[in-house]
Every structure is written in C-alpha cells, then in structure tokens.
Design a protein around this nucleic acid. Structure first.
Length: 122
RNA sequence: GUAGUAUUUCAGAUGAUUGCUUGCCUUUAUGGCCAGAGGAAAGUCCGGACACUAUAGAGCAGGGUGCUAGAUAACGUCUAGUGGGAGUGAUCCUAAGGAAAGUGCAACAGAAAAUUACCGCUACUUUUGUAGUAAGGGUGAAAACGCGAGGUAAGAGCUCACGACAAUCUAUGGAGACACAGAUUGGGUGUAAACCCCACCUAGUGCAACACCAGAAUGAAACGAUAUUAGGUUGCUCGCCAAGUUUCAAGUUGGUGGCUUGAGAUGCAUAGUAAUAUGCAUUCUAGAUAAAUAAUCAUCUAAUACAGAAUCCGGCUUACGAAAUGCUCAUAUU
C-alpha cells in the first residue's frame, strides 16, 4: 500500500457514494470514482477504505473482514488504475463465520472487472 | 458411572513463502535484527494511582457500607472463623445492627391481619337480647408456645410440673463474634431488599483528563502620533465606524507529549492455618491512531469454544472449549 492513502472524513464518503459508480457481488459492494486532485499534486495516488457494519458479527469477525479486504488490495494494487477512490462495503447479509479469504478475493476482483478498473496485463 | 462436588492447568507449538506495526543498527537499500492481544482484553458494576478544578475548620443534606478477627494502596474484594439455612453426603448459600423511638403496609380468602369474635361453649333473661370466654371448627404465607394436671358456670400461662423460645446476670473456655452450664425474669405476629433510627465511611470531573507547538477564524482591552498616499459617514475639520498592530481569553482543526519500569514478572528462602508480607537473585515481555499482530502450505495434536489491547493497576459479574486430581453418593464384584 505504497501509493495509497486512507479515507478518513465523512464528507469524502458521502461524495463517493453520490457521484461514484458501484457494482455488487455476492458478499461485497465496491464503490469508486475519480479523485479531485490534479496530477501534479497527488495524481498517481489512490484512496482506499473498508466499511463493515455491526450486523456482520462481533469485533473479532469485523477485524478479520477488514484484514481480508486490505490483504486483497495490497496483493492486487499494481493491477489497479491509479487516481481513483476505492471503497469496499460488506453487505449486511454476509455472515462473517461463513466467509473465506478466497471467496472474498474472487468477489472483489469480479467487481473490479465490471467497473473496468482491473487490468490483468500489468 | 453422559451421577455430584471442589480445586488446578492449558487456551496451541515448530518450520517455509508472501505481507503489516513500533523500536534498534548501519552501507540509506525494492536492506538486516528484535518484539508484537486475553482468561476473560468484554460488561463498565466497585476500589485506587495519575491529571485538572474546588476546599480555614466543623456540621447539615445526599450517597454508600452493616456478625468477628485479619490482609491490603484501597474496596461493596479476599482469607480464617461464629450464628442461621439447603442437601443422604462431599459441599454450598447467607444484605447477618435496631420492630420496647415514631409512621406505614399486610393482596385474595377469612368474623378478625392487630387490643379479633362468625359458628360454638357457659350464665341470666327469655325468643330476643345482655354478659363472660377463647377449648374446638373453618380461612390464610402468617391467627397469640407445646403437652399434662389443677382450676371454673364455661374457659383461659389464670396457676403448677416438664419442655421450647427471648432477655439479663454469674462461672468456665475463646483474641473476638460466640459456645456451654446455672440462676432470675418474661409473655399479642410479620415486614427495616418500606420510610426511619443507630454506628462507620464519603469533595467533583475522567486520558475525549491535562501540557506544549502550528494555522485559521471569534470576542475583549490598548495603540491607532507627524508628513505623503489612503475605505465609509461629511461641503470641510474634529469625532465615530471599518481596516491594521500588540496583548489576553475561551474553544475548534492538525501534530507532539501524556504512553508504558510497574502497588511489575519469574524462581528460591523465611513468617503465617490462609489471604498476604519481607528478603535475595534473575529479567524487561504490545503501545497502534479509521487503529498493526494476517494469508497459504506441511508436521505434531484434543487444538476445537467464547472472544480483539486503546492511560495503568486490584477485584466482581457475565460468555465459553478441553484435560487432570481429591472427595462424596449409588450400583456391581472381591
């Protein structure tokens, strides 16, 4: 996660959910949009965040789901387009005990392919 | 023994590959090394450390605690006991001061839930009442100590013997709660986790405390002299407002500290029934900030459940997987 920063503020999340594009998988919804910054300033930098609601499980399970999403992002970081915001939301129906790392990895990659942000050649 | 009960232990380990966070080292590199969640980290129910605010001293109100002795920094915690209760038993539970200071409450049923009288019993009068009584009946969670004798119109602790209970005194034992024995006295209930009385304790807010740095905006006060240029009010001057500079205040945003060496951990010895204390030796074991401790594979294995540090300690409560040991009970065999 060298070229990425975290999204911290509530305004940014609202901006992404309004103006961005999203695609749904089995367990995950991926939001994304272009960043506001010009290329000279922070052009090649990505922004990333994970959302897990309390309905998915207790704090152990929530931490594990965050780790899964972060691990997938760090593995596939070089293949993603730069200059975008990425937000991974877990659905409310997903129960944390029934989910694997591999399932979520496939799910996130499929969502990214639908949005044309995933480039396998690089 | 799919019985019960008490106590203790573990909560994965090793290796490989790819990654994350703090720290250290240096050739500053797409480096190397070390360390990296729990027994409950949880609930936030108590107690303290620490920080800030308040406070002469004493008291009221409010809040808390409530058998005895000890432990502790402190506690509503712990240890050892006493009394009471549950269980066949091992063992467990106990908010355990005061009802003779005062006030209140006691559903339904029942005559009556506190100075009681429906049925009944007795006497007198007589068909309806008066007086006495609490043996017996029935209601209830609870109805005036049990049983026998005397006594009486009928009865009654009204009196007596035996017993139970309570209070006081004496003797013995114990550090004490109290135990045990004897004597005297006593006879209308329960509830204080109802108000209340008594004894003892008790300032408030919590690391989002607090301190420092930087930036922007806000408020208050002071300055705002002379010459030139110069915002608004004005025909002009003074004055006022605005702008500017300095100081102070409070809080906001970002960052740094607070932050982990401590009522510490491990081992041994001594004192003590124990909680615990003292001494000696060894040792440094997470410190993140949208928040690190992960993924895959292999071997061992019971390795599964509950569950994620956020200023730090001591407890309590709740959730939960596995194993071991002691004791009790039941059955069977010898």
């Amino acid at each position: 996660m060298k070229n990425t920063l975290r999204i911290k503020k509530d305004k940014v999340f609202k901006y992404i959910f309004k103006k961005g594009v999203y695609s749904k998988g089995n367990y995950v919804i991926v939001h994304s949009c272009k960043t506001k910054f010009s290329e000279e300033d922070k052009g090649g930098v990505n922004f990333f965040a994970v959302c897990v609601s309390k309905k998915n499980g207790n704090s152990v399970i929530r931490n594990r789901l965050k780790r899964y999403a972060r691990a997938v992002y760090t593995e596939q970081e070089t293949k993603l387009k730069s200059g975008y915001n990425y937000v991974v939301m877990y659905k409310k129906d997903t129960i944390g005990k029934e989910v694997n790392f591999n399932l979520i990895k496939e799910d996130i990659i499929n969502c990214l392919k639908e949005l044309d942000l995933y480039e396998e050649n690089n």
